[in-house]
């Protein structure tokens, strides 16, 4: 592209990138450091930029005992809730949308396109827009404060359906026909050919959807009231007290760090599949 760059010309991109990394990484660093000091050190307004010595104690308390003053729940329970919610949402969304995409692409039935467009239109109605009717329905079904109420309304997904539909349309018709001649019915074709071919797409979607589920804030805030149903994102919010009580910042920081870990792990572990699913067109 650019030929014969000067020393400055070669350094500049690195400087820009380093600045970018610093902007993104510094708050994370601050959270990690904050979680290793005593609350008094943070509370006096001059938190040092080097790690303190309280890490083990803080993380033990955060995970298994709880801050005590504000919520009695230890963060390990919240982590489990969040993890279950994100898993159910991600797996549920993938299962529902791959099946509906399969129906829309491979079967001819009355109102097929009407069904497709109805799914498509729901893209314009995210949870926030339909939150009152959704809350009403979930409440009437007696699903408040339950994992079902937390996850079901978030599972129906137009985005994932569209993505699978687009992928299925690139699968050559001859594969369907070869399967027919090989004696594979609709279910066998789905299980033996379509699912294995969608593997990387599913992985990519799983990463995106897991993080989507993990980061849910508004819906869990509305639907859960019991402490033992709290997700970690809500938990952090509840730890920050605005009244005269002292916020235990080291525990808030530790919780924030813990809340970051599972999504990071998912991305790191599935990165290879994730990238392939987004760029590769296998056949």
């Amino acid at each position: 592209m650019v030929e014969r760059r000067t020393l400055f010309g070669r350094l500049l991109p690195h400087l820009v990138l380093l600045a970018g990394v610093a902007v993104v990484a510094f708050p994370v660093y601050l959270a990690v450091v904050g979680s290793t000091h005593e609350s008094a050190v943070i509370a006096n307004g001059q938190m040092p930029l080097y790690p303190g010595a309280q890490a083990a104690d803080t993380y033990y308390r955060t995970l298994f005992i709880g801050p005590g003053r504000t919520t009695r729940e230890p963060v390990s329970g919240m982590l489990l809730n969040s993890f279950l919610m994100a898993m159910i949402i991600a797996v549920g969304k993938i299962a529902i949308s791959i099946l509906s995409a399969y129906a829309v692409v491979y079967f001819r039935f009355p109102l097929r396109m009407a069904a497709f467009w109805m799914i498509f239109v729901t893209l314009m109605l995210p949870v926030e827009v339909r939150i009152y009717p959704t809350y009403k329905v979930v409440a009437d079904l007696g699903m408040l404060d339950s994992m079902a109420g937390l996850t079901l309304p978030l599972i129906a997904s137009a985005t994932a359906t569209l993505l699978f539909r687009q992928f299925f349309m690139t699968v050559p018709d001859e594969l369907v026909e070869a399967s027919k001649i090989d004696g594979a019915g609709p279910f066998r074709f789905f299980k033996d050919t379509l699912l294995p071919l969608s593997r990387t797409n599913m992985a990519a979607l799983f990463v995106i959807l897991f993080i989507y589920g993990w980061n849910q804030y508004l819906w869990p805030l509305l639907i859960t009231t019991r402490d033992d149903m709290q997700t970690i994102v809500i938990g952090i919010k509840k730890m920050i007290v605005t009244s005269d009580a002292l916020t235990e910042w080291q525990i808030v920081m530790a919780t924030a760090v813990l809340a970051m870990l599972p999504p990071v792990l998912v991305v790191v572990l599935m990165q290879k599949l994730f990238v392939r699913g987004l760029v590769e067109t296998e056949k």
Partner: peptide, 9 residues
């Protein structure tokens, strides 16, 4: 088939 239609996986 013309494009062979082998199962790629």
């Amino acid at each position: 088939f013309q494009n062979y239609a082998l199962y790629p996986h």
